Simulated assay, not measured.
Amino acid sequence: MWSCSNEDEWERFLIPFKKGQTKGNVILVTTRIPQLAQMVKTTGQYIDLKGLDPENFTKLFFAWVFGDEQPQNHHSGLLDIGNQIKEKLKGSPLAAKTVGRLLRSYIDLGHWTRVLESKEWEFQNGENDIMPALKLSFDYLPFQLQQCFIYCGCFLKITNLVKKS
């Protein structure tokens, strides 16, 4: 879940599940927002999944960047920049995949430096925030794909408006 403004909204979401049966329905909620997890939990606990440990995260990130190939000797400058970018990804496998594929598109020092020095990182708040990494992947899409992405994003907003009326 990316957002749920209050407990009433959550309760409205649950109504169809409560009407038909009293037992047998299970909803597994995943979120990066601890306050949201606390609000929607129905049992006495929730499981706080941390990001990958640094060693495995590094392997995953560079696997997305270089694929099955090992970095070449002339990639040492890239690896230094890649390690700095990796620190901004908060151990998130989704961020590793997204930014790793972005870096893979141009195995070039200039491209990687632009990603590292992007203003998007300044908007990162909180230890679990990976939105700047996801926004970067959008920023580097070709223009026509950005337009398509924006167009498709409109439907969710329209759907939400219809549900609220």
Results as ranks from 00 to 15, higher is better:
Ala95Gln: 06
Val162Glu: 08
Leu134Trp: 05
Leu14Gln: 15
Asn125Asp: 03
Gly110Val: 14
Leu89Pro: 15
Pro132Phe: 03
Leu14Arg: 15
Thr43Gly: 12
Ala37Thr: 01
Gly82Gln: 04
Ala95Ile: 10
Asn25Tyr: 04
Lys135Glu: 01
Gln35Asp: 03
Ile27His: 05
Ile15Val: 15
Leu52Ile: 09
Gly91Asp: 00
Ile158Val: 14
Glu55Thr: 05
Leu161Glu: 10
Gly153Phe: 11
Leu79Phe: 07
Pro71Glu: 05
Glu122Ala: 13
Asn125Ile: 14
Phe66Cys: 00
Thr58Ala: 09
Thr159Ile: 13
Glu55Val: 15
Leu103Trp: 10
Pro93Cys: 08
Gly91Ile: 09
Leu36Gln: 02
Phe62Tyr: 04
Asn160Met: 11
Glu127Cys: 11
Lys163Asp: 06
Cys152Pro: 06
Lys88Val: 00
Pro132Ile: 01
Phe17Met: 12
Gly100Asn: 08
Ser3Thr: 08
Pro71Leu: 04
Trp121Leu: 11
Gly24Ala: 09
Ala37Gly: 10
Gln38Val: 10
Tyr151Glu: 00
Asn160Lys: 13
Asp139Glu: 03
Val29Asn: 00
Cys154Lys: 13
Ser118Gln: 05
Gln21Ile: 09
Asn160Gln: 14
Glu127Met: 05
Tyr140Asp: 01
Pro93Glu: 02
Ile33Pro: 02
Gly91Leu: 10
Lys18Tyr: 03
Asn128Leu: 15
Asp80Gly: 03
Val162His: 12
Glu7Met: 13
Trp112Asp: 06
Leu116Pro: 14
Leu102Trp: 06
His74Phe: 12
Asp53Thr: 04
Asn56Met: 09
Ser92Phe: 14
Ile85Trp: 13
Lys164Phe: 12
Val29His: 06
Pro93Ala: 03
Lys23Arg: 07
Arg12Ser: 11
Lys86Asp: 00
Phe17Leu: 06
Leu78Val: 11
Lys97Thr: 06
Phe149Ile: 02
Ala96Cys: 12
Phe62Trp: 03
Asp53Trp: 07
Asp80Leu: 14
Asp80Ile: 15
Lys163Glu: 09
Gln146Phe: 10
Lys163His: 11
Ala133Ser: 08
Leu36Arg: 02
Leu156Ile: 07
Asp48Glu: 15
Phe17Arg: 04
Lys19Pro: 07
Arg114Gly: 06
Thr31Phe: 05
Lys19Asn: 10
Asp129Tyr: 09
His111Gly: 03
Cys154Ser: 07
Pro34Asn: 04
Leu60Gly: 04
Asn56Lys: 14
Leu134His: 03
Arg12Gln: 11
Arg12Leu: 13
Asp68Asn: 13
Pro132Leu: 02
Glu120Arg: 15
Cys4Lys: 00
Pro34Gln: 05
Pro132Ala: 01
Lys19Glu: 07
Gln38Leu: 14
Asn73Cys: 03
Gly24Cys: 12
Gln21Thr: 11
Phe62Met: 00
Arg32Ser: 10
Phe13Leu: 13
Asp48Ile: 09
Phe57Gln: 03
Gly44Gln: 04
Asn56Cys: 02
Ser5Asp: 11
Ser137Leu: 08
Glu127Ser: 09
Lys18Pro: 12
Trp10Val: 00
Gly126Asn: 06
Trp10Ala: 02
Ser92Met: 12
Ile47Ala: 05
